[in-house]
Every structure is written in C-alpha cells, then in structure tokens.
Design a protein around this nucleic acid. Sequence first.
DNA 1: CGTATCCA
DNA 2: TGGATACGG
Length: 339
Amino acid sequence: MGVDISGILLKHKTSIKENSGTVVSVDAYNIIYQFLSSIRGENGEPLKDASGNITSHLSGIFYRTATLLENNIKPVYSFDGKPFYLKFETLKERRVIREKNIDELNIAIKNNDTEKIKSLSSRINYITDDVVNESKKLLDYMGIPWVQAPSEGEAQASYMSKVGIVDSTISQDYDCLLFGARRVLRNFTMYGRRRISGTGKFINIVPEIIELNENLNYNGITQDQLIDIGILVGTDFNPGIRGIGAKTALSLIKKYNNINDVLKAKNKSIENLDEIENFFKNPPVENIDKLEFRPVNREGIIGYLCNERGFSENRINSIMDSIEKNYSNANQSNLDKFF
DNA sequence: CGTATCCA
DNA sequence: TGGATACGG
C-alpha cells in the first residue's frame, strides 16, 4: 500500500511531547482503518454496541484525539472524497485480496482455528459510509475541525502541511511526501507497542518524524525528482518498474536527471505518466484559510457515545476532565494568557 | 488502539 | 514503578 521509498529517507525519533504546541493534519481513512483492524475484543471481533453496530472507530478516534489534545496538539482530520480514477486498479486489487481473505476465514471458522480467525478477520474491514459519518459526528462533538477532501484525503492533509496551515501530517504512508507535506509523523502513538499479527508477541515501535526538505537536500534531489522516484518504485496509481526499488530509483534519477530519460535508457514505459506526475504536484484540494477549534461539547459526547453507543460514562467523563484541564488553557491565545 | 489493573 | 495482561463496546 502506498509508495515504498523508505530506503532513501532520513527519519528521526520523535515523541508526542516533542510535538506539543503544534497543529497536525490527519489522514482520517488511514487511522480509521488502523482502528478497525486493531481495536478488537478477544474473539477477534471489533467492538460493538448493544445493537451490534461497530464502535472501534469511535473508541479509537475519541481516545487518540483526547491524547493529542491533552498534549496540546491540535488535529484536523481529512476525509477521502472521490478517488483519483487511476486508483481504481489498486482498489480492485485490494478487493480481490479481501475476497481471498474472506474465503480463508470461512475455512478457518469451519476448522475452529482461533489464531487464524483472529489474524484473518483483522485484515477484513472496509470503511463504510456509516463509519465515516459517525466519525465526523464524533469530531463535531469534540470541537475538532475536519475537511472533506475533493479527492484523496492524504493529498488534502499533505497540502495543509505544504502551505503551512498545519505543522505536520500524521500518516503511515510516504505518499504524503510526494504530495509535498513538509513533515510527516509515523507511528505517532503514546505507547510504542504493536502486536505482530498471528503471534502473541510485541515489537517496539518508535514515533518518527520525516522532514521533506531535509530529505531532498540529503539525497540531492528536487521535489519533482522525488515524485519521479516514487513513480518508478510504484504508487497507488501505477505498478512501478519491476526490479526497481527506492535506492535504484534514486541513483537512476540522479544519473539521468528525469524519469523520461530513465525510462528511455531502460527501454520501459509507464502508462499515464504525465497525469500521475501532475496529480502529485497539483491534486484537487479544498482551500482552507482558517481552522476552527471549538470547546468540547460534553453533553453531546455523553449523549452520543454513552447513551447511544454504550460507552462507560465514567471513562468518557474522566477523559474529558483531563482534556479540559490541559486543552481549554492551551486553547487561549497568547493575549488571553497575558492578561 | 488505549486504559485499567494486577503483581513482582 | 513498570511490565504483562485483561478489558473496553
């Protein structure tokens, strides 16, 4: 998924604390997907309310947003709109994989293979309109701004970083760098532990920050050349050239200067090359001039999460207490603090 | 994923 | 106090 240019990137260890006082854009689908696949009960099923509606995304968004606010990091969420038409191939591939997983899951259920049921079912989830609308509703109650991107949410989130409306972008995908995000935060979670799927073991994961300009300088390339490296390796919009990884792509681009000459030398071609390049350079985005952060609507959240969706009122209230303690103060302007 | 709890 | 584990919905 995404573009794998990890091999040529400089990454720095970071932490939530180090990013205190910043505004970040969040690729909403990216994290909702993570929540749906990882927030699960012991039977491997996602969390559900009494009527059987999935609530993993609500749990994830509420607690994650709360953690950010408590640390004086203000998020704006960016939701996917209409996919770029060249993405349809990728989406089709994902659908095929999904159907294969469902078949395997049915076999595992028949064989009562609990470990396999768990690992397979965590991979089978897709984001429905309900999941999206419920997430937006919760963000509204939390006073957190969100943007409906005209096309890719990741492009929109990156654009906001590119033009300086936010300081950085939270995403697991490196595509953000191709879209021009100045800083990308990966593995941006409180407790750096992640379960290796299937096994019960944990690995430590460290939040990391990737700075676009530093990487362009470090590799001695321009933004356009970075985009071309991504396209050679393969993106959501093209399969990439067989046998070319990030490091090879970098040395080829440095040797030949641009992707057209690389392709000529290798006697290869990439379909819709100009269109893909142009999409990374100028994706459709919503222009935002100001982000509005409103106070948390306590009654709204209790009504929605606790009364409607069966969340514990004690838990939700205590989290909102700590948000109020740190965030309402942090939310004041410097002028307010001064007087 | 993130919080709560238990126990060395 | 912190590492493992149970639980949330």
